[in-house]
Write a protein that binds this DNA or RNA. Structure first.
Lengths: 126, 126, 126, 126
DNA sequence: GTGGTCTAGACCACG
DNA sequence: GTGGTCTAGACCACC
């Protein structure tokens, strides 16, 4: 499971972990029935605290995307196609565009940045 | 001033306020020279503490979007003096793209949403 | 950590703290990776409120000089990630020159002081 | 009396006014015995509040540089050659240089900026 | 009356 | 235990 976290970001690590896994599930890369690594193992892989991964898994469980089986890891349970609503999307998108416009970026710059970052994000998860 | 905040959101209130005003300025709704409500006034309107609004205003001032003059309120400055750095841009962009991926949007959907919103934002500015 | 503040000064305490740390970082006394004291610790040392130190740290974070990680303190980042904009530069420079003119220094005195101090600052860095 | 103030600066207007006059006196442009404009007139010239100019004059009086004569303006009284101490100078200079180094400016850039700004400051007052 | 700053204390998110 | 945020209230600088 290829996950990249940015410790220097202001987004909580547990959320980065959860979000990356969510994207994989929603995107179909992780099908229902797939077994996720144990909390302990993923924590070791990422070099983060076990609590952090546990929190991420708990969030995934709350979203109904995985089932945590005591002693035997977690399993992807859902085929949900969306875990974010339109309002959040619009707010985030508008904020990002505003930031880019403030940076003096032109339409072409913005579109290029979007495709680049999109490419980077989805490639990391392949 | 049309600002709505969500106390139950996980985004800090001061940031919600700052971001909303930022969008209004970049969108042109708040033109350069416009006088913002006083800290106390806006705090009363929103039902939050004075300091919370003051923090939001300070952030806008650091971004160069408004000028705060002791004893005489805050005014919107020219957008040309504003600055935004690459870190802020990347952070916002990455967050927005993640949000869209979580909504189950595919590459084409995302690009369309970006161009649409970009169009909407810049059109408002005229 | 050698920091001294002057409560009777007209410069805000949080800015004094931030500026002193900034000089230490740029001068190389605080190298990248160095862990700063916790907010509570430094506040206790200086005899000021926690929030005051937190404000100073936030300013340093906004400048990209330190990275604050929830639950695990603040560390000095590489100077290369730091940013400073033209406004800050001009403001500081104008203030310094005015101060020197008020001290009765003439053009030659000022230029010599600048080169001397510049030499001292960059030499410390090695 | 050629005085320039920057309302967008974070330095208080009254201090800008006071400092500019101080520089003129310390620099010898305004000799002892010279009569300053009335508070009312200078306020009108600068487009600022009368209180602001009055505060500036009061500071000059406290520094022993001028004498305020009730009803007949203010007169330069001193030939003091310095109204700033070495500690303030060093602090301001170090802060400005730190800011410029953070902005990525090289030695040559810094020296040029200093001479440029110095020229601008002293020319304004001729 | 305006914003700036600081304090004290509280609660929460994070690791 | 760490930092983040918010509140309430106070005092000060500024205009």
């Amino acid at each position: 499971m290829q996950i990249t976290i940015h410790t220097d970001s202001d987004r909580p690590i547990y959320r980065q972990v959860a979000d990356e896994i969510k994207v994989l599930i929603v995107g179909g890369t992780l099908a229902a029935g797939t077994v996720l690594p144990t909390v302990r193992q993923l924590a070791a892989d990422l070099g983060v605290n076990m609590n952090t991964v546990a929190t991420a898994y708990r969030e995934l469980q709350n979203d109904g995307l995985i089932a945590i089986r005591h002693g035997s890891g977690a399993v992807v349970t859902s085929q949900r196609t969306a875990v974010s609503n339109q309002r959040d999307v619009q707010r985030a998108l508008r904020g990002a565009l505003t930031e880019m416009l403030l940076a003096g970026m032109r339409r072409a710059d913005i579109l290029r940045a979007v495709t680049d970052e999109l490419h980077a994000l989805t490639r990391e998860k392949s």
